[in-house]
Write a protein that binds this DNA or RNA. Structure first.
Length: 465
RNA sequence: UCCGGAUUAGCUCAGCGGUAGAGCAGUUGACUGUUAAUCAAUUGGUCGUUGGUUCGAUCCCAACAUCCGGAGCCA
């Protein structure tokens, strides 16, 4: 008989008395001298386990059922019945229990039936999905990824699969990983002893992308509403709870739009995502709210209700200068906001997500649109309490002459000729932003370390699984 | 990369200049429609690595490694 997912078994849509089969992994077994054992079985489809009541009369009860501990995989067939005990509505009255896979050595099985620290679980990243926490994170991650695609699909955005390999090293977002097939122990050289990249795979130096934005702009200039959603790579030596060397990013780009349209999109998008996860991950979020972060649900609801505050950079600096709070880094107009400043703004001053707009041009990238004051550019950061910058975006410079001047200022070379072409042929005001997918999940779940919201985190000195 | 902190049983931690302890897990038994079950007994450790100080180092010192927190970079 085909197995039914535990989510379905617990949903109440199958009439009691029906024959069912569940398959999954044992979370716990409790033996009763009343002549049966209770087995809690997980298969990842839901937060809750299903309980199987296994009678001692089964042929393999002594030899197998009583030996099947935490982590063993099993297939259990029987009748779905209303539970006599508290804690679950339904359970399986087992008629057969087949142990599919044993746990070699229960004492050294890394995932014991107890609380483990997240630091420890990172060292067993291949087994940590078996815990409540990582199962819940995985389901939330899936719901959010789907919600992202659904949001854009419903609003006539096209999903653009921008390349992961790029020859441009000037995308302005940090250090790049080199992509090469050259023999490192025998590098080809040019006449003046430089490495001869013309003999490399792509005929020039190439790298893993740090952003799909420049490429997605080209599709935006034809399809109007587009987005990328995929992995991104940064070779920064960043050792923090908010950075990964490999992470996923969502980057929408909209044509015929300015910075305010961009901020509207960011706000509506986040609000939709949070509403969706509140609706679809009730059990998992209840778990996070109880064991990981007591303010989790409250915070999600606040963002779902769109309680964003918008302010100009200039206004933000003004607030920071006037507050009595002492900062390690003094504030003055022209500096980039430090973590402590961003935290003060969204955590203490406002107590909700803040969108800071129109930053000094000196501290922002070449492609951001120059404002009329010629001192600021149309950039925005969405700052979230507890996370910091969750979104960074801008209106793009659509005027060829201004863009060229900015590129020259920042030393960006000719390899972006195609990017300039977009301003030469039917240019249009447009804007977009980048949302760090893992930062979003951190914010939603309350998980403090970004290494715990991606299945196999890559950080400096660390890619073991 | 910089500044702090940590590294002792499978896990979480306590401890002390005279070579070690608890809780949980595991194992065994008792008990029970149980559900982080309970109760009893019990196994289990070159105290991160390498040097140094000392009669003697797990403890003090130094370097290194790894991890954590904060900062920078950013998403």
């Amino acid at each position: 008989m085909a197995a039914t997912s535990i989510k379905q078994l617990l949903a109440g849509s199958i009439a009691t008395g029906n024959a069912v089969t569940a398959q999954g992994w044992v979370r716990s077994r409790r033996d009763s001298k009343g002549g049966f054992s209770f087995m809690a079985i997980h298969d990842g489809s839901s937060f809750d386990a299903i309980q199987a009541v296994v009678p001692a009369e089964l042929d393999n009860y002594q030899e197998e059922v009583l030996q099947a501990g935490v982590g063993c995989s099993v297939k259990i067939s029987g009748q779905l019945v209303a539970s006599q005990g508290k804690g679950q509505a339904f359970e399986i009255q087992a008629q057969s229990v087949e142990v599919i896979g044993w746990v070699d050595d229960p004492e050294s099985y890394p995932i014991a039936k107890k609380r483990h620290s997240f630091e420890y679980l990172r060292t067993v990243a291949h087994l940590r999905p078996r815990t409540n926490t990582f199962g819940a994170i995985t389901r939330v991650r899936t719901v959010l990824a789907n919600a992202i695609h659904n949001y854009f699909f419903d609003r006539e955005f096209q999903w653009i699969n921008t390349p992961l390999i790029t020859a441009s090293d000037c995308e302005g977002a940090g250090e790049l990983f080199r992509v090469s097939t050259l023999d490192l122990s025998n590098l080809p050289r040019t006449e003046n002893e430089a490495i001869d990249f013309s003999r490399d795979f792509f005929g020039e130096e190439s790298f893993l992308t740090v952003s799909g934005q420049l490429n997605v702009e080209s599709y935006c200039m034809a399809l109007s509403k587009v987005y990328t959603f995929g992995p991104t790579f940064r070779a920064e030596n960043s050792n923090t709870s908010r950075h990964l060397a490999e992470f996923w990013m969502v980057e929408p780009e909209i044509a015929f739009a300015d910075l305010n349209d961009d901020a509207d999109l960011a706000e509506d998008f986040l609000s939709y995502l949070f509403k969706t996860v509140l609706e679809k991950c009730e059990d998992d979020l209840a778990f996070f709210n109880q064991f990981v972060d007591k303010t989790c649900l409250e915070r999600l609801q606040a963002v779902a209700d769109k309680s964003f505050v918008r302010m100009d950079y200039t206004e933000a600096v003004d607030i920071l200068e006037k507050t009595k709070k002492k900062f390690e880094y003094p504030v003055k107009w022209g500096i980039d906001l430090q973590s402590e400043h961003e935290r003060f703004l969204c955590e203490e001053h406002v107590g909700a997500p803040v969108i800071v707009m129109n930053y000094p041009k000196e501290i922002k990238a070449f492609y951001m649109r120059m404002n009329d004051d010629e001192k600021t550019v149309a950039a925005m950061d969405v700052l979230a309490p507890g996370i910091g910058e969750i979104i960074g975006g801008s209106q793009r410079e659509e005027r060829l002459d201004v863009l060229q001047a900015r590129m020259a200022e920042q030393g960006v070379g000719d390899e972006l000729w195609w990017y300039k072409d977009l301003r030469r042929y039917g240019t249009v005001p447009h804007a977009g932003f980048g949302l760090g997918f893992e930062r979003l999940i951190s914010y939603v779940t309350g998980m403090e370390n970004i290494r715990d919201v991606i299945p196999f985190p890559r950080t400096p000195g660390n890619a073991p699984f």
